[in-house]
């Protein structure tokens, strides 16, 4: 038989069983001085390792088994108390709900009072979306949403040449302008929003309600999109999703260009 593998010799040195081949390996090792020497060296190395590892041992804190049992028992007791408290709170909540369901009960009156107070408080806070945008407001980077009036102006005051605007006519009451990539500041104006785009490669999504009578999109003073009733004029192209895609570096909308194919 050839010499057993190093792994087999290692397993023998570790006192591990070798399964079906164990008798063959042992028979070889008994008659092979070289393998016996290898196993002896491995065992010596393990002993040296153990000696080294024992160097980092120290006197460790002892623990009493009774203390451990007491700790486990105390924790079990605490769990029982916690469970009882939780059950008690649960019963209280269910009882209160049951009493509140009875018409004319004081609990019901109190709950109604609380809800009435909450409604009043809510009524005093103006909803940020439904309020008309009368004062300039800046919202960095995320986008704006505002209710569409009869006229909407979307103005890009500073725009990179690599970005684009996608205008989609939608059946919602809100105008929404958001950007992906780049950095932009939004300022709500009387009729719409002015966007200061700092990013070089931003995509702006404009959701324009179909109910808007007159809409205009300008980039750096150039008109690139208009909506007049149902008529759309734009320098952009209609893509497969139904959006008008206009490069931010787009040229001015030609006055005499017939874009009747873009009519909606």
């Amino acid at each position: 038989m050839m010499h057993p593998s190093t792994m087999d010799l290692q397993a023998l040195a570790d006192g591990e069983p070798l399964g079906a081949r164990e008798s063959d390996v042992l028979a070889h090792v008994r008659s092979c001085a070289e393998c016996q020497h290898s196993i002896a060296e491995m065992r010596a190395a393990h002993e040296r390792d153990e000696e080294l590892l024992s160097l980092i041992d120290r006197r460790l804190p002892t623990a009493s088994v009774n203390a451990v049992i007491a700790r486990a028992a105390a924790r079990r007791g605490t769990r029982g108390i916690r469970g009882a408290i939780a059950a008690g709170i649960g019963i209280l909540i269910v009882s209160a709900a049951a009493v509140a369901a009875v018409p004319g009960s004081p609990v019901r009156a109190y709950v109604e009072h609380l809800f009435a107070h909450t409604r009043d408080s809510a009524a005093t806070i103006p909803h940020p979306v439904t309020q008309a945008p009368i004062a300039p407001r800046e919202t960095p980077n995320v986008g704006v949403s505002f209710p569409a009036g009869s006229r909407v102006e979307i103005v890009f005051s500073r725009a990179g040449v690599q970005g684009r605007v996608r205008v989609t006519v939608v059946d919602t009451p809100m105008v929404r302008v958001t950007n992906h990539g780049g950095t932009a500041a939004y300022r709500l104006t009387l009729h719409g929003v002015t966007i200061d785009s700092v990013g070089s490669n931003a995509t702006f999504e404009v959701m324009l309600p179909s109910t808007v009578g007159r809409a205009i999109v300008r980039i750096d003073g150039r008109t690139v999109f208009t909506k007049n009733g149902t008529r759309i004029r734009t320098t952009g192209a209609l893509d497969s999703t139904g959006a008008y895609v206009i490069p931010l570096g787009a040229t001015r909308l030609p006055v005499d260009r017939d874009l009747s194919q873009n009519r909606i």
Binding site: L53, I56, D57, R58, L60, P61, A63, V65, V68, I69, R71, A72, A73, R75, R76
Partner: peptide
Amino acid sequence: LHRLSGDAALASDIAQETFVRLYQ
């Protein structure tokens, strides 16, 4: 645990907690 962590107090805490869990 002490050889593994190098921290005697931690080894003691974990060893005791392990036996607490066994008892529980």
